[in-house]
Design a protein around this nucleic acid. Structure first.
Length: 246
DNA sequence: AATGGCCCCAACCGCCGTTTC
DNA sequence: AGAAACGGCGGTTGGGGCCAT
């Protein structure tokens, strides 16, 4: 992009006419070759800007409206595991963009954690997911589970039902955050997380990444199996993920 | 009504990996 | 093989809207 061209490009908020034009040309040409699409369409925008506008705003598959509690939970759980991998998190939330997830995390979670004074123990500049996860579990997830348990007509408290299900839990994979042990059925989102875990367990590149991240754990004699047997042998995912970051 | 502070989010920036020529 | 173009990502910014004073 030469200087002359760049000077003529529009920036800032998109106008309705620009949106309409962009939608028309994306429908016509598809979601690729954004530079040429920008040129052909006559929009005085960079290809990059067009792509961003489409991906973050105009794409009809996007879900509008506030995040649900489940989405919120997922964001936090995955963030606790992967850190600021916004696009990865967004991929687990159909209709949500990385930008949306990123903004949401910054404005909601961080504020929440600060309010609860967790900053004292959490170094936000590093991936201390274990701390986040454990603290989050102590507050949000248990609160959520308690609410959901009540909503589903279960009269037992979280602790009670957790205790009751503890034995049967040993026979299963445990559910990644023991939600099932609360006596609550898995939601579609949780199933998605489970799918994701399965993906990880078979995806060698992800496994290698995990291996890198867990190298320090193995120094502490924590034996973590990478690969297909990895998750199977890790009965308590939560404990495992916490150990990754400690 | 005016104003200042804060929050939220769309848009931009810069970098890097991948694809294309 | 290498350069250029493209696409994706995470971090940052700026402006609009809301609210308290």
């Amino acid at each position: 992009m030469d200087y002359k061209k760049e000077k003529t490009l529009r920036r800032g908020p998109w106008l309705e006419e620009e949106d309409e034009r962009l939608v028309k040309f994306v429908t016509l040409l598809g979601e690729r070759r954004w530079d040429s699409l920008a040129r052909v369409s006559g929009l005085k925008r960079s290809g990059k800007s067009c792509r961003l506008r489409w991906m973050n705003y105009l794409n009809p598959s996007l879900k509008r409206g506030p995040m649900s509690q489940e989405e919120e939970t997922i964001i936090f759980q995955i963030h606790a595991f992967w850190g600021n991998k916004w696009s990865m998190i967004a991929r687990r939330l159909p209709g949500r963009t990385d930008n949306e997830v990123k903004n949401y995390y910054r404005t909601h979670f961080r504020k929440k954690m600060e309010a609860q004074n967790y900053d004292k123990i959490i170094d936000w500049s590093r991936n201390t997911g274990g701390d986040l996860l454990c603290k989050y579990k102590e507050t949000e997830i248990i609160t959520w589970a308690r609410t959901t348990t009540q909503e589903h007509g279960f009269d037992k408290t979280v602790k009670e039902s957790k205790q009751i299900n503890m034995e049967s839990d040993k026979e299963t994979n445990g559910g990644i955050f023991e939600r099932e042990s609360f006596g609550v059925m898995k939601s579609p989102y949780e199933n998605r997380i489970s799918d994701w875990i399965s993906e990880i367990s078979t995806d060698q590149s992800d496994a290698n990444l995990l291996e890198d991240r867990t190298s320090s754990s193995s120094e502490n004699n924590i034996d973590i199996n990478i690969g297909s047997s990895w998750f199977e042998e890790t009965r308590d995912f939560e404990e495992f993920s916490c150990s990754l970051w400690s």
